[in-house]
Design a protein around this nucleic acid. Structure first.
Lengths: 203, 203
DNA sequence: CCACTTGTTGATCAATTGATCAGCGGCGGG
DNA sequence: CCCGCCGCTGATCAATTGATCAACAAGTGG
């Protein structure tokens, strides 16, 4: 016999590891079925009993908050605004690089779907997140474009149009389950190039 | 006394009118809280008892189907493909006119939200609808653009990018409750003009 | 090998919710 | 004016679900 199997399905775990395991399952579960998913299905997914969920999270609301924290926190890199303003790099390269990073951060099954569900249910975090995107990312990008020679200044609505066209790739893939290019970079590059070409001064 | 008030809150209604009233409330209710909304809240909203809902709809699934039928049917105008191919009109005007019509059809609180909720829950109707959009609307639009002198042929991914950028206006407004221009026409015109300018042959 | 700590479980409660049904009562016909 | 049809309601059932708790047992120190 193999004696005690240490890395195999051990029953007792250290609280921290167990909590992490449940939280992981919660993120996956709520991303799939929505924030209205039951704690029983979640527990089954995590391989524990439903009662144990309440050992680590006092209520479903508390669990939901932990899921939000796990999904939202640390997605927006603090270095982005600086990279956006780095005029040593051409504006087109800056836009492509930013959206490559941005989509790498948010184009995941969990993030896209939980964000959309939270949006539909009117979560305040979504408003805050999107306000941040508009003011800290799109507005600076707009200024940089406006400061680029030979380009007309786009409106914020134009910026949201660029943003939406790119984000829609993730919506198609993770919300609607439509086929999309595996690597969004070419589509992003194409969209950015078109966007800037459309802003080229007609003279 | 005003005698018998005929158009006032009558109790007994003809079955057809009552069914319509409940269905209207169902569309509004499910758009707001999602397809998981309770029949009791729905009944309260319609001003009837919960039992009456089951007089007109055998089950909640049946009610949901009726909601889908009400929301989806008749949105896609059969005349659009023809208008798209009307080469007597300049391509830019055709694109603007199409998206003016298209957004006029789908930019409603009910349509946008029910469509998004159905997308998250994996409703088959969404796939069918979006396949239809791609094959019957975007593909012809792409062909028309490709056939326009001085323009490079966009890829289907480019077409989805144009589409997504415009649809995102409705997502911002009805899903995320962000402020958007009341009339999307100028933003659409701007996006279409940029899109085509970006496709202008570089020579 | 025993005993204590504590991570874990099965059982259970109360509230919610989809669905049913017997009976009330508005309203038109006679 | 009253009778009967049928639209409508209140009560109720069974299943689901968030939350709780006493008790079990895995691991550890003595």
């Amino acid at each position: 016999m193999d004696g005690p199997p240490p890395p195999s399905p051990r029953r007792r775990l250290e609280p921290e590891a167990r909590r992490e395991q449940i939280l992981d399952a919660a993120v996956a579960h709520f991303a799939e079925v929505g924030l209205g998913g039951t704690t029983r299905d979640l527990a089954r997914r995590a391989g524990v009993t439903q009662a144990l969920v309440y050992q680590y999270f006092g209520s479903k609301a508390e669990l939901t908050e932990a899921v939000f924290a796990r999904v939202y926190l640390g997605r927006l890199e603090p270095g982005w605004p600086d990279a956006i303003r780095d005029r040593a790099t051409p504006i087109e390269a800056r836009l492509c690089a930013f959206y490559a990073e941005y989509t790498r951060a948010i184009f995941t099954y969990e993030w896209m779907r939980i964000f959309m569900w939270a949006g539909l249910t009117g979560e305040v975090l979504n408003r805050r997140y999107l306000d941040h995107v508009g003011e800290r990312l799109l507005a600076p990008l707009r200024e940089e474009i406006a400061a680029s020679p030979g380009l007309m200044a786009p409106s914020m609505e134009d910026m949201w149009n660029l943003h939406g066209g790119i984000v829609y790739i993730g919506i198609r893939r993770f919300i609607y389950h439509l086929p999309t290019p595996e690597d969004p970079a070419p589509a992003i590059a194409s969209a950015v190039r078109r966007f800037l070409a459309g802003l080229a001064a007609p003279a």
